[in-house]
Design a protein around this nucleic acid. Structure first.
Length: 205
DNA sequence: ATGCCGATGTCCT
DNA sequence: GGACATCGGCATC
């Protein structure tokens, strides 16, 4: 049956269960349209960051800085920040404004605009590294911290549902990557990946 | 396959 | 000055 693509609406983002949203984002299509150029990829890896009580979150303890301001934004807005001085990491903001829930998109399976992704990344060929890992996918889609605070209901960055659903046995849940310093919260099962997908990041947790 | 390292913005001590 | 939601390259096993 033919399924049309539909932009995710406010009701999708405006929910309390950030873990459920992170899981449901698997299979959705992340799209950027900058200067008339459309690039997109299917989301195959996500991580939930669960607000003020989450030691791995930039908002732990209610901390609020210039960098993390957009983490406190309205549901369906974008939080992009610079990691390790050079990588721009893209997060979807969920729950109500001032409740700093976010989902980090960690890997995509490229769909549209692959030629443009190669230009943006400077890679010679479209191997799995093109959109594997949060820094790589943001670069491939042309996203930078200048886009932080944008709305996913805009026509520049948004997420579509084309009807694809992964079954429970196609999804693996693990601890998050690169958050060792978050003490006991480093072990929380907040990472969601599509089992066996070659674009899923392979970095050590 | 595993590990170390450099690059480097933002926040913290 | 050190830590950090990373990545690619190079050394070593």
């Amino acid at each position: 049956m033919l399924t049309s693509k539909k932009k995710l609406d406010l009701d999708f983002y405006d929910r309390k269960d950030v873990l459920r949203i992170a899981k449901e984002l698997l299979g959705k299509i992340l799209v950027t349209q900058f200067d008339g150029i459309r690039s997109s990829g299917r989301i195959v890896e996500t991580e939930a960051y669960a607000g003020e009580n989450d030691r791995a979150s930039h908002a732990f303890g209610g901390k609020r800085t210039a960098r993390s301001e957009h983490l406190y934004g309205a549901p369906g807005s974008v939080y992009i920040y610079i990691c390790y001085g050079m990588h721009h990491l893209f997060n979807v903001i969920t729950n109500k404004a001032n409740i700093p829930h976010g989902v980090l998109i960690r890997a995509l399976e490229p769909l549209e605009g692959i030629e443009q992704m190669l230009v943006r990344t400077g890679k010679p060929v479209a191997d799995y590294s093109l959109t594997k890992g949060p820094g790589n996918l943001a670069r491939a889609l042309g996203m930078s911290k200048l886009h932080s605070g944008l709305s996913l209901f805009s026509d520049k960055i948004f997420i579509e549902d084309d009807g694809l659903r992964y079954k429970k046995d196609q999804i693996t849940i693990t601890r998050r990557i690169g958050v060792e310093s978050a003490r006991e919260d480093a072990e929380l099962p907040y990472r969601f990946i599509v089992k066996g997908n070659p674009y899923v990041s392979s970095r050590k947790s």
